[in-house]
């Protein structure tokens, strides 16, 4: 989880990502930030994010991103 917060903070400063719950829905990160986030997550956790996971609900909070990462690692 800490690694995810670190990646998110690298994309956008001044946001308390640990408390945020609508990161994608409220466009705290825009589509280009999300694309950079995907690249960073894939590199960091050795996963492949496919279109099935490209839904706002998977990117709305740190815990949602972590759940997605865990699910992809198990696949």
């Amino acid at each position: 989880m800490d690694k995810i917060i670190e990646i998110l903070s690298g994309l956008k400063s001044g946001v308390d990502f640990s408390a945020a719950e609508r990161i994608a829905t409220d466009k705290i990160l825009d589509s280009i930030d999300i694309a950079s986030l995907i690249t960073a997550l894939e590199d960091e956790f050795d996963i492949e994010i496919s279109m099935e996971y490209m839904d706002n609900k998977n990117f709305d909070s740190v815990s949602a991103i972590w759940e997605m990462v865990k699910e992809l690692q198990e696949e």
């Binding site: 589509s31 694309a35 995907i38 690249t39 894939e42 590199d43 492949e48 994010i49 279109m51 490209m54």
Partner: peptide, 22 residues
């Protein structure tokens, strides 16, 4: 964004470009 940009971003060839030059 949902049906062109994201599919391009997560496509295999875009990931290949990213791995080479990212």
């Amino acid at each position: 964004k949902d049906y062109v940009y994201y599919p391009l971003t997560v496509s295999k060839w875009m990931k290949a470009v990213n791995k080479k030059t990212g």
